[in-house]
Write a protein that binds this DNA or RNA. Structure first.
Lengths: 295, 295
DNA sequence: ATCATGGTATAAATCCTCTCTATGACAAAG
DNA sequence: CTTTGTCATAGAGAGGATTTATACCATGAT
């Protein structure tokens, strides 16, 4: 069997035309080179060099081979260079999945500082529903995903990242409710605003209401935190929202939070990773940073 | 230092996605493959495979590398194939130098049988003067040369191949000379036909005449055996020719040989080879055959 | 001629790397 | 809960590459 190392030795020898010099270049001794060349010649069944008194000289066969070997090793060299470049994060790509609201309110601040530090890493954000994100992580199309917990962890590792506190928020027209403490029952009879059917927030709310023996049946379904806040402040109804996401509206007095009889349970969010696949060099520092803050 | 063998192992592993299978393909054990991959990863400083529970899977870096390695090893493969083809003499080339007359009368018969046996070897004949041929052998542009001896053997090996007998030939108008035995002196006074100044035949003749205290001064100089024979048979004079080369003309009676007082010394011819360079695979059998017949 | 120089080949001992055996750990599937 | 298939690891071992030392050869200078 041909040892590919012999080709490297062959190349140096062919270029220098001198076993001794080739040996020096390769940091080995001359007999070592002599031996390797002989092995290669034996394996190929041809003489590759004429041994002259002042060095060696490629035979026709050797000349023919040299072209191939040069190209081959050059390609490998290019490969190694590419890898080295990727190692310096140059070619890196960070693929994150998250819901729209988590992207905006949780991910964005982290991404900003991360991108400053690693400007060469291309960030690809995939907005999507939790279960879709998890699926894509399983398939290796995403490096990680920011999802609401609990998440079906088939083949995934979930790192809890912290909790978000949801609440019910309304605008001026419902100001009279501010002084009261509302039961789930009462809430369910008010006009409710919420995300659409299959969002995790919606599912969470339905489950909670069900546990309280009520039904969560929103009158208006909307697709983003912004729209819900907007509609609520206009008085269309009571919106179920994450408190942290509407800080601005609260501070400005456009929204206020309703008191509930029983506190809305906090919802954990977590970072989902593939349980076996190792993180790419580009993803590693990002994930590390994320987990540092809230492990 | 990266061992190029690792790349071969990497390639098989990447293709099978399974260390165990790669190991089988390579006729080694699984830990061996595991070890090699780890070495390569350590040397490159990146992880090349995700280790999953049902095999391995290329990382981004691994995928990037794979293309290079595939190409590289394919090129080497092509090289080995080419060499194998050359070994079967397919790509062989036999470069012979010789004078015009030796080509026609000595080389041709050998070349015919040789070409029948090795039809794939391209034969390149270089007609030329002896010293030019020797020079080109020294430079490696010719594999061998058929030359008149003695030849200046600087850096060359000369194998004697046999002797050629020269003689003086004339046509019908000189028939009256046929019964006599001529001295060199007498010959020099007859109209002589010969090769041009720097041909080895001419030099040989001049030296011989000088040794006999005469001068060899041809009236007509011509460039080929055929022309000399033609002119001689037409009666232009006496031609100095190699006997074996004019057999046909002798048999047909168009020429006859003159008797000389002292026999023309035979001239040796030889095969000149480079003293250090090994013969190419294409040249080897030809030279062997040539030397077999007349060593 | 003789010697010095610069090159390769060879022999034998050594060393190191790769390979193997054996085993562990882990996940998936039955 | 066992079986099966996978990779990782440890330790022993073998064998090939490397080194050291030397021979050999051609060349060119003394």
């Amino acid at each position: 069997m041909i040892n590919l190392e012999w080709y490297r030795i062959f190349l140096h020898t062919a270029r220098t035309g001198n076993l001794t010099h080739a040996a020096k270049e390769l940091y080995v001794t001359q007999p070592s080179v002599s031996y390797a060349i002989k092995q290669l010649e034996a394996e190929l069944g041809v003489t590759l060099f004429h041994r002259l008194s002042k060095g060696v000289e490629l035979t026709e066969e050797g000349k023919a081979l040299l072209g191939f070997v040069e190209e081959s090793l050059a390609v490998l060299d290019a490969g190694e260079t590419r890898i080295a470049a990727m190692k310096r994060l140059g070619g890196g790509e960070l693929r994150i999945g998250a819901s729209q609201s988590l992207i905006k309110h949780v991910l964005l601040p982290h991404l900003n500082t991360f991108h400053e530090e690693y400007p060469d890493i291309r960030i690809r954000l995939s907005p999507g529903k939790t279960n879709i994100i998890l699926q894509r992580i399983r398939e290796g199309q995403l490096d990680c995903g920011l999802v609401h917990l609990p998440a079906a962890g088939e083949g995934l590792t979930i790192h809890p990242l912290g909790e978000l506190q949801d609440g019910f928020f309304a605008g001026a027209p419902f100001r009279h409710l501010a002084e009261r403490t509302l039961s789930t029952q009462e809430l369910s009879e008010l006009p409710l605003l919420s995300f659409s059917e299959d969002s995790s927030t919606r599912i969470f709310a339905e489950q909670w209401f069900a546990a309280e023996h009520s039904a969560f049946e929103p009158d208006i379904e909307l697709g983003s935190v912004e729209l819900l806040a907007e509609f609520a402040s206009e008085g269309f109804g009571i919106a179920l929202l994450t408190r942290a996401f509407v800080q601005k509206e609260l501070a400005a007095g456009r929204l206020f939070e309703l008191q509930t009889e029983r506190p809305v349970p906090p919802r954990a969010i977590g970072l989902a990773l593939h349980h076996e696949r190792k993180l790419s060099l580009a993803a590693r520092p990002f994930v590390d940073r994320l987990l540092e803050n809230a492990p």
